[in-house]
């Protein structure tokens, strides 16, 4: 047993000091040995230290945490930075003010629920199933993808990935096949988001349609895997409203409804300019005016495509191709010419 009657930090220090001096009598090594965890451990194994002394030596070595090999220490800080990144991505979307506000609301809610749980206060169960209503090309999928990232970084979802499906992925060919297919998709989405595009089509097709079976399976899984995934139903506003009205069970299970308004012509111009900037092109003023005219004309026609970012993207991509045709025969075009999109490139839209 120990020859130190009163084990203390000093005593242990003396022990280790004397040991390393006797081993390799170099003066500089003493202080190093004292800081060396291996030296303490082997002194301990040889029966020269008590556990208590070893701990007091550890304490002198300082509080730094030794990560086992292969594990990052800054997981939390990178979590926070990835969350910031996802939020920046959301903020960089043009328009969608109500959507952004709602995402912030949900985020704040999640964080406060966590803090309440720490204080042992009653917490609301996080039901985050959502319905996205809006015309095509209004940013539903983009927002869902960003939400996945945000929820992963806040710890709501394990993986935060997005599984995007439509009616054909869920509905089967014979009785019983549908439930099987639907469950398969849900299994893939566990830990992330299941995003069903044009969800209203599940309720179309009358009594004998298998879409009903898919809805039933989804509703069941929402209860069974309540904590494992988030279900988002997306579709056109009118069809979705009808869908919700005809399936009262659906409405109560989706506490969050987000409307994606059509983009205004001004916002669409901003989107177009952002897209061109990313591709290192720019519009000349006449082209800009012309694009504006096309967009307002579509808006007044109450076209489904009116407030549609995808529509703008197609116009832009077409304009880029036309610009290429215009310049291909020209020898030595300048840098400026290669970047500029002119009125004739835009043409009459699509």
């Amino acid at each position: 047993m120990t020859n130190c009657a009163k084990p203390s930090a000093n005593c242990a220090k003396r022990l280790v000091n004397s040991m390393s001096v006797s081993n390799d009598a170099k003066p500089g090594v003493n202080s190093y040995s004292l800081r060396d965890i291996d030296a303490v451990l082997s002194a301990f194994e040889e029966g020269r230290l008590t556990p208590a002394q070893a701990f007091s030596l550890f304490r002198e070595m300082g509080p730094q945490f030794e990560a086992p090999p292969g594990q990052g220490q800054d997981a939390e800080s990178s979590n926070a930075s990835r969350l910031r990144e996802a939020l920046n991505e959301l903020d960089s979307l043009i328009g969608l003010h109500s959507v952004k506000r709602l995402v912030r609301e949900i985020l704040a809610f999640v964080q406060i629920q966590k803090k309440r749980a720490r204080q042992q206060l009653a917490t609301e169960h996080l039901v985050l199933h959502m319905i996205f209503k809006g015309n095509p090309g209004t940013g539903k999928t983009t927002v869902a993808r960003i939400m996945g990232k945000i929820f992963r970084e806040t710890g709501v979802l394990e993986r935060g990935h997005l599984i995007e499906v439509e009616r054909a992925d869920l509905v089967g060919e014979y009785i019983g096949h549908t439930a099987q297919k639907t469950r398969e998709q849900i299994r893939k989405a566990l830990g992330g988001i299941l995003f069903i595009d044009e969800a209203y089509s599940l309720a179309r097709g009358g009594e004998k349609d298998f879409g009903k079976e898919a809805i039933d399976t989804l509703v069941k899984s929402m209860e069974d895997y309540r904590d494992r995934f988030i279900l988002i139903l997306a579709g056109y506003s009118e069809e979705m409203n009808y869908f919700i009205q005809t399936n009262p069970g659906i409405r109560s299970r989706f506490p969050i409804h987000i409307d994606f308004p059509d983009y205004l012509p001004d916002e669409l111009i901003q989107i177009a300019e952002l897209m061109l900037k990313k591709r290192e092109y720019k519009l000349d003023p006449w082209a800009r005016n012309h694009l504006y005219t096309i967009l307002t004309k579509h808006a007044s026609n109450l076209d489904h495509n009116a407030g549609n970012a995808r529509f703008v993207r197609n116009i832009i991509e077409r304009a880029i191709r036309r610009q290429a045709v215009r310049l291909v025969d020209k020898e030595n075009p300048t840098r400026e010419e290669l970047m500029l999109i002119r009125r004739e490139d835009i043409g009459e839209g699509l």
């Binding site: 047993m1 451990l41 301990f44 029966g47 556990p51 208590a52 945490f65 086992p68």
Partner: peptide, 24 residues
């Protein structure tokens, strides 16, 4: 973890494992 130094080398080695894993 014992208060004193244990006489059994095997147990001392086991305790030393405890000590080294505490820091990680």
């Amino acid at each position: 973890l014992t208060d004193g130094i244990h006489q059994d080398a095997e147990i001392r080695r086991a305790m030393s494992q405890t000590l080294s894993s505490v820091r990680a």
